[in-house]
Design a binder for these strands. Structure first.
Length: 103
DNA sequence: CGGGTGACTTTAC
DNA sequence: CGTAAAGCCACCC
């Protein structure tokens, strides 16, 4: 287990099923940084440039697309989520219905 | 080792 | 509703 923190994040994000989303906090907890969800976003930013990771399926604890400003277009993230059937409530996803708990 | 940075979270005003 | 600040910790230089 010499996987870097980043790699752990990639692995989890890659496992998010279509039509579901997860949160920074949940991933942070899963990799052992329970209190540093920041690192998840930090890693995700790099992840986006590395692989075809579905980083748009990762949102903050309220379901808001906080990372949309790092995408080519502000709509990119939302379009991908809606295309997968994820319900939106205002500018956020409905976590009650599509939250995926990392295993 | 230390400083800068950050796609978070919570509390406070 | 908004902004500010602090806590948090890995990565890079």
């Amino acid at each position: 287990m010499d996987a870097d923190f980043f790699e752990k994040v990639y692995e989890i994000v890659a496992r998010i099923p279509a039509g579901k989303v997860t949160t920074y906090g949940a991933i942070a907890e899963k990799v052992g940084l329970r209190s540093s969800a920041r690192m998840v976003g930090y890693a995700l930013n790099a992840a986006m440039y590395r692989e075809d990771l579905p980083c748009w399926r990762v949102v903050n604890r309220l379901g808001e697309l906080t990372g949309k400003r790092y995408f080519p277009t502000p709509n990119y993230m939302r379009e991908r989520l809606e295309a997968e059937g994820i319900p939106f409530v205002g500018d956020a996803v409905d976590l009650k219905k599509c939250f995926w708990n990392p295993e």
